[in-house]
């Protein structure tokens, strides 16, 4: 076991996969010599050379599109978008090719690639560097959408994503890259994509979240217990597609009360899908209307105001208390 940050854990997952499997490649802007603007690809160029770690021109559509072709010729590309805010350039390649090739060729051609991108607010970055738009990718049939929340699950899920036979959009909460450390096992670890994690068992209310929002959620859960004697069950989804309906539903059947939390905007956000599944599968178990604590339906404000606009523990506590006291 070694203590490490999420940045190091992601790096470790790539290093392990590249050492084991010569078809794994890394492509992205500044991923080689510069070792990534967040240093996630530290040491990879030195260890695996310029044929496998590619410093790419400033062209996101090309990073995604070229990766598709590499897949056809037997490679497993890990494509990095420097920020999720620039991943939209690759949208067309991802929707029209990455997500569809398996289906339209009936499995003759597939895209076992990972598209990694840092997302989310909280690091006082300039415009276009703070959005949470995971719902966009979750809406596209044919893609898996994985979002880790800490060093250990980041490493295990990235490994699973690299070796997954299908394309995975891997959203990395950049505010968590270096925010805290966790014990990570010596041996490579894999987590099944599509399985949620009950991070904190509880009986009074289910709080469902993922990624960067897990930190305020866990803070809120502590506050709920200590200040308000509310025992929250916290679910970390870890993957939006596939989504672990079973774990969600089982918890809701137990607590009857739900709060869903994410940084992404509210309108057609992941919470809407989560709640729809609850309504489809556990409507009669609900004892209160479900609350959503999300980003507002606004362009992400510039960073001077961002702290007010990111869902915090206070908003989660308020929502949970309302749901519990209904």
């Amino acid at each position: 076991m070694a203590e490490m940050t999420m940045a190091k854990a992601l790096n470790l997952a790539m290093r392990e996969a590249m050492a084991e499997d010569k078809t794994v490649m890394v492509l992205g802007q500044d991923v080689g010599k510069d070792e990534g603007v967040f240093r996630i690809t530290e040491g990879l160029l030195k260890e695996f050379g310029p044929d496998r770690v590619i410093d790419f021109p400033v062209a996101e559509s090309a990073i995604a599109g070229v990766s598709v072709g590499l897949c056809f010729t037997g490679f497993k590309p890990i494509a990095e978008m420097q920020f999720s805010g620039f991943g939209y350039h690759a949208f067309h390649q991802i929707e029209n090719h990455v997500a569809r090739f398996r289906n339209r060729t009936r499995g003759r051609y597939t895209c076992p690639m990972v598209v990694r991108m840092p997302y989310g607010a909280g690091i006082r970055a300039i415009e276009h560097h703070s959005e949470s738009r995971e719902a966009i990718w979750a809406h596209l049939p044919g893609l898996k959408v994985v979002i880790p929340s800490g060093p250990r699950n980041a490493r295990a899920l990235l490994r699973a994503s690299i070796f997954d036979p299908d394309p995975v959009m891997f959203y990395e909460p950049k505010a968590c890259y270096r925010a805290f450390k966790e014990e990570v096992p010596e041996e490579p670890e894999v987590m099944e994509i599509g399985k949620a994690n009950i991070v904190r068992p509880g009986d009074d209310v289910t709080i469902i979240s993922y990624g960067a929002s897990m930190r305020p959620v866990l803070e809120a859960a502590d506050e709920l217990e200590i200040e308000h004697h509310i025992d929250a069950e916290v679910i970390d989804l870890l993957s939006l597609v596939p989504m672990d309906t079973e774990t969600i539903v089982a918890s809701v059947k137990k607590t009857g009360r739900v709060v869903v939390v994410h940084e992404a905007p509210k309108n057609c956000g992941p919470a809407a899908e989560i709640i729809a599944r609850i309504v489809e599968n556990a409507l009669m178990f609900l004892e209160a209307p479900i609350e959503r604590v999300t980003g507002y339906d606004l362009v992400m404000p510039f960073f001077n105001l961002e702290k007010f606009y990111i869902p915090d523990a206070h908003r989660v506590v308020t929502a949970a208390r309302e749901v519990v006291s209904y």
Binding site: K266, N267, Y296, D297, L298, V299, P301, N304, L305, F308, Y309, H314, R315, T318
Partner: peptide, 29 residues
């Protein structure tokens, strides 16, 4: 900066769902 300003400049006329969100935001502030 005016903390509420991002709400005021989303559309020429604020739609009801944003009005509601702005009120919730004000209460939070």
């Amino acid at each position: 900066p005016d903390v509420l300003e991002p709400f005021r400049h989303s559309f020429a006329t604020m739609p009801p769902h944003l009005e509601e969100q702005m009120m919730q935001f004000q209460a939070y502030l």
